[in-house]
Design a protein around this nucleic acid. Structure first.
Lengths: 232, 232
DNA sequence: CGATCGTATATTGGATCCAATCGGGAACGC
DNA sequence: GCGTTCCCGATTGGATCCAATATACGATCG
């Protein structure tokens, strides 16, 4: 079995965590059917906590449940992906605008530390570190709900990027954009920083959409894997 | 029992719908403990679908579940309420900006019909109609996720407005603001309309916050009711 | 030969039963 | 008198069992 029986709080919470992790990482690709029985036995619990977790995931928009048919991992259309990035751009630009005047030396240090970490990190960590960098810049804005929404949009889009496209990805370019964004924040150039942030997000969107629309081959490869069974 | 056994899809979905309705309408006030047993017998189902519904509500942020202690209806702090309105303002201004150039005669007609309906409607319908008006203006933007987020923020804030404050509320003022906003949209005055919308939302926020911070009496009255039991 | 209806099976939805945990109160000791 | 400990009731979490429903396959009839 692929999972180890963790010992923490409730079984439902563990199942939720495990499933969410696997969905957001792309380990379980969009379109995949989630069978309660299989998940239950893989995690060593009964179907009840699995169902509770699935319900929660549905409310989070990560799976879609149809009565008596089961749960399927959702997949965002190109339009939905575009919109997710647009929403991020709107919210994060606003956050940055609020934040820049109050960014402290501490914040800059942490942001730089994250960038340094990102330079050396393995691809699986890029997503989290990238987001950590963004959030570091928004801390003084003190708008947790907005950050949470933006994060949700970020993760929900990122999982659609096929794994091969992540490693060969545009990390250098991203890092350049990060560093110039950080510089603009240091100079308290609100308008410049917001423009840079907007461009940065638009860039990421364009990259994802380019991969998805030009290379349906990769998508197909991911889809076929679901048929073979993922029980190893 | 307060609920009639509806016959539709699954029991869990019915419970979810019923609970969400009651929470968003303010019928079940924030801070209230939700006992599975009671809800189950009131709706004539077992505790299982109730738990599934509660899990979903937790993911929606309407209740908070603590292990082995139960579910409590969440209550937003003043800061959180302020932020919810700010997020609405950001997203809806963006939506309006996208929308105005493409608003058709049809849209204006529908918006006006909603305003007319609002003039005559009972207080319980104000919330839905108010939102329907806003959404009518955003239709050409074709950004369903953003609308959905804004709606969630709207509903989540509105349920905190004590019922007495709703009826004596500022409907006339709201309607004036609605009509001038609509006029600006007709004139394709993007900047003016966005300013008006921003002011409109800020107004609503100020009203709610004024009621909540000046009149903790009403809040206390609501809280005490929870002790008496709501079984009628 | 094809379409349609029925049945059989797999899978989900729900109910009941049991276990784990929390809260409060009583008994005990200091 | 006050604090501590232990136990009991209440409530939630989880497992097993049963019911309902959808899908697939095959039989029957036109």
């Amino acid at each position: 079995m692929a999972f180890s029986k963790l010992e923490r709080s409730t079984a439902a919470a563990q199942v939720l965590e495990a499933l969410r992790e696997q969905i957001l990482s792309g380990d379980i690709p969009g379109g995949e059917q989630l069978r309660q029985e299989r998940i239950a036995e893989e995690l060593g619990v009964s179907r009840v906590p699995v169902r509770e977790a699935l319900n929660q995931l549905e409310a989070e928009g990560l799976v879609r449940i149809v009565s008596h048919k089961g749960a399927v991992v959702t997949r965002l259309s190109l339009d939905e992906l575009r919109e997710a990035y647009e929403i991020r751009a709107q919210l994060e630009a606003w956050l940055l605008r609020l934040s820049i005047p109050n960014l402290a030396a501490d914040d800059f240090l942490r942001a730089e530390a994250i960038l340094a970490e990102l330079d050396a990190a393995a691809p699986e960590q890029w997503s989290d570190l990238n987001w950590a960098f963004h959030v570091a810049l928004y801390r003084p804005a003190a708008r947790p709900q907005a950050v949470s929404i933006a994060r949700k949009m970020y993760l929900n889009a990122y999982r659609h990027l096929p794994v091969p496209a992540r490693v060969m990805g545009h990390r250098d370019r991203m890092q350049r954009e990060h560093r110039s964004l950080l510089r603009l924040c240091r100079e308290r150039d609100v308008e410049g920083a917001c423009r840079a942030l907007d461009a940065h997000i638009a860039d990421a969107a364009a990259g994802l959409i380019a991969v998805l629309s030009s290379g349906p081959a990769a998508e197909a490869a991911v889809k076929t894997r679901k048929k073979k069974g993922r029980s190893e």
